[in-house]
Structure formats: structure tokens, C-alpha cells
Design a protein around this nucleic acid. Structure first.
Lengths: 182, 182
DNA sequence: GGAAGATTGTTGTTGACGACAACAATTGCT
DNA sequence: AGCAATTGTTGTCGTCAACAACAATCTTCC
């Protein structure tokens, strides 16, 4: 543990470059290296063909948004997945591990470790279900409830960072577009 | 190798559930398990508080979109990152590994393995730079160029899947919102 | 011109994460 | 009662981001 925080300023802001209209027709087969003028322009590359790919933009955005989340909640040492688990349990106490895993789209094998760490920190507790002795009923501890309240405040701050980054109405439109995946 | 393809139908389509308007006010501290009616409604949980979080929606969407990309390009055994590397090199022949890594936001350590695999498949080649004997000038091989053309056709098909999933104009608006990250 | 520092490619480690397989305990079905 | 399915758990494998260390090479500065 104690490795999470890496807030290290990896949030480089060199993004948002201008999309130059010149398409260089790169198909040139010349195997000879393009003389010496390649060395210094490596800050204006222009990846052209990648611009129209949703997956690439989403991946880059996802990396940024997770880094900001981790950094914003570094003081409480909570990662996005842990937060989502606690949120679901907090909103639906008594759920089984299977139910939480299915709801969040994570595997139950993975949830085991997540719950182990959260249980060690006295944030959630597994209570043996009386109706089904295979399963555990998941609850937040009293400490977990007050902690989650603070996590939510920090998460709201993170959400404000997102709004600053892409614009308030763009963020809402994004949530609307992706609501099918929530 | 030969493990990539796992197109295995893991693309579960149980997403896009209806958001029931009933919020159950879950704060109830009753540690007693909610009798037996928890067992069967585990398909309508309602995670409520997670709905307003951009990061969660983006993560779920990113998982879906990558799985579709991998499945759509499974026949040529190309993953999203490999595709992005080849695209950048194809559009800017002669770049150094550092330049490609910085442009794509991946670490140069990671790029080493990516290029190893692509070079073993005779898709790209590292040519020792004459002007800076530390660096390599990256080029597509002739085989790599024709292969990339096919990859782009398959990627376009994948992009159509995205449009089918979230709507054509929603996809374009998404690309526009996230253009700062491209 | 030569020492000190930075850069480039490389190797290796760590940790989070998704996918999968196997297993014991328990439940459900018939 | 007997057999299939479910639940939590453990373990393995592969991907990926983040670091650290290193040799070779460039750059800078005295």
C-alpha cells in the first residue's frame, strides 16, 4: 500500500493542438530517412488518421479522468473501483457479492480482493446471510458511512475538474450519451 | 502469442437497463438482512449515486468499445494500441520511439514491447538513425503498409458499430467533446 | 576538449485490472 | 436422494500504467 498517491504531475497539458489541414500523403515508399529535419519537429506530429476514432479519444479521456480522480481522492487513498463498490453497497445495503459484481461489471473473483481491502480498513463488512449460507450480505460500517460521505464530497470536486476540462454542458451531454452504459 | 483473439462472447448485452424512478432511501441501518426479497431482484438494483459520475460511464464505455475493436479486428490479430502505433508511424514515417510514445501518451518502455511484436510480424522496422545514433527511425514495411490499409477498413467497421450503439450524431458529438484529448 | 548532465532505448519490477479455471460449500431442481 | 447450478474463494495468465536502473549516445558548459 501507500503507493497509490502518485499525483506526479503526469497531467501534461500539451494536448489540444491545432489540427492542421495539410495532409502529407504519407504513403511515400522512400526508405531513406527524411534527412535531419525530423529531429526537432517532434512536438508537432499530427497523427491525422487517429482523429476520427472514438476509442482512442475515449481511452485518452479515461486515463485523464482516472488520474484526476485518484489524485483528488489521494488523501483518503480511494481508487475509482473502490469508490464504486462502496457507493453501490451504501445505496443498496445487504447485497451479495455476486449482485455487486454483476451490477458494476466486475468479476466476483476481483471483488473478493476489493472487499478484503475495504474490510481491513473497516469500511465495509461481510455479514453471513441467514437465508443463503453461501452468500454474504454486504454493509457499510458506521465508519464506512461517514467515510463515504467524505469520499462523495471529494468525488464531487473531481467532477468539477471534469466540468472545467471539457465544459459544464459538454460533461452533461457526455453523461447523457453514455447513460446506456451506466 | 495466439492468445489475443478471445472474441469469446463476453460482449454481454445486458446493458442499457431502464432506470427505475424509485429511490429506496437506503440509509436504513437495520443490520438484519432484508428478509428473502433480496435474492430475486438482483437485476434491478439501481446504483443511483453512480449515475452522475463521468468516470464510471466512460470506463464502462471504454471497456465496451475496446472489446468491440478487438473482436472486429480479431481476424488480423491487432489490438487498439498496436493499431494506434502503426497509424502514427504510417502517417509520420521516420519518427523516433520517444516521439511516438509521447504522441500516443504511452511509455517508451511499453513501446519497446509493442514494436518488438510488430517488428517480428514484419509490419514495422526500426532503422538506426544516422543523425542520432541513440534513436531509431520507425517505418512501416511494405507489408505493413498494405496490412494497415486493411486494418483501417476493419477499424472503420468497428467505428460503425460504435455509431450503431450510441447513435451516429452522438458519436460525432462525442468525438467533438473529446477532441482535446486526441 | 573534456567532464557533467540530459536523452534514447532497453530491461525489470510493481500494482491495478479483466478473463478464466478450478474448487468447496451450499442451494435448487426433479 | 441425487445431480445441476450458484456463491465465495484461490490461483493463473495477459494487458497495461508507473517507476527505477542501466548503457550508449548526445548536449552543454566550463
Amino acid at each position: 500500500m501507500a503507493r497509490n498517491s502518485q499525483a506526479g504531475g503526469t497531467a501534461r497539458s500539451r494536448i489540444a493542438r491545432s489540427r492542421a489541414g495539410t495532409r502529407p500523403r504519407p504513403g511515400r515508399t522512400r526508405s531513406g530517412n527524411g534527412s535531419a529535419h525530423n529531429d526537432l519537429l517532434n512536438d508537432e506530429i499530427g497523427l491525422d488518421a487517429l482523429a476520427g476514432h472514438a476509442g482512442y479519444a475515449v481511452r485518452r479521456f479515461q486515463i485523464w479522468i482516472f488520474q484526476d480522480f485518484i489524485r483528488t481522492l489521494a488523501a483518503v487513498d480511494i481508487r475509482p473501483t473502490q469508490y464504486s463498490v462502496m457507493t453501490v453497497i451504501g445505496a443498496n445495503p445487504g447485497l451479495s457479492q455476486m449482485a455487486v459484481a454483476k451490477r458494476l461489471g466486475i468479476e466476483r473473483a476481483r471483488l473478493v480482493h476489493l472487499l478484503d481491502s475495504l474490510e481491513h480498513r473497516d469500511l465495509v463488512s461481510r455479514i453471513k446471510s441467514a437465508t443463503d449460507r453461501r452468500s454474504h450480505a454486504l454493509h457499510l460500517t458506521a465508519q464506512g458511512r461517514t467515510a463515504l460521505a467524505q469520499f462523495k464530497r471529494l468525488a464531487a470536486e473531481h467532477e468539477r475538474h471534469v466540468a472545467e476540462k471539457i465544459g459544464k454542458e459538454n460533461r452533461e451531454r457526455l453523461l447523457q450519451i453514455l447513460s446506456a452504459f451506466t
